[in-house]
Amino acid sequence: MDTALELDHVTRTYGRGPHAVHALHGLNARLYAHSLSAVMGPSGSGKSTFLQCAAGLDRPTSGTVRLAGREVSAMRERELTRLRRERIGFVFQSFNLLPTLTAQENVLLPLRLDGKRRDPVRARRMLARVGLEGRADARPGELSGGQQQRVAIARALITEPDIVFADEPTGALDKDTAADVLGLLRESVSAYGATVVVVTHDPAVAARADRVLRLADGRLAEETARVPA
């Protein structure tokens, strides 16, 4: 199995002296390509910091982060921006889409920011893949919460990134819609070979993940891999 993401002795400390907070405390973790991983843990266990550091949005105080073989922790701001644009997709709990753009324009945004030409066919194909045929011209305000998450997933996948980070993607959805969205993430892994890392509280997500990492106090507390059926 290829390694998609590797964290090696990653420490992240906020503040100094007696008030310092060790959000990550020598975390070692490895996530594999073409799989769905869930990162779980109670509040304050370092989940958010893990996400920030892994995605190159925050620099670890010490240790290294490697994404698809490249050392993210050593990159400069400009390289990181390019990395986000070309190699990483994001899905958040809510406010994933620019309310002023249509679904199609939102999906194309990463490509447009990269200076690529508008490609409506590609966007429509991607929207169809997430089950939103015919909604390309809808604005986020006209879509349900579940549909908005689907658009967000389409946007995250359109660049064919090395890895998609999803931060509580089902947190704002009801049970059935959450199951749908989770199914879509699962499918993008099994059918299209994407690599998805979900940071979540939701045990339902963990139940369908290939691998579950549990964090506690900024360390890896437990790692379980699903036995292939």
């Binding site: 400009r78 986000r84 994001f90 620019l98 990463p110 990269d114 946007r155």
Partner: peptide, 16 residues
């Protein structure tokens, strides 16, 4: 703020 931050996670640099 949320809009600009979202743009940046999607890959916009500060200049954009």
């Amino acid at each position: 703020l949320r809009e600009f931050s979202l743009l940046r996670t999607v890959g916009a640099d500060k200049r954009q």
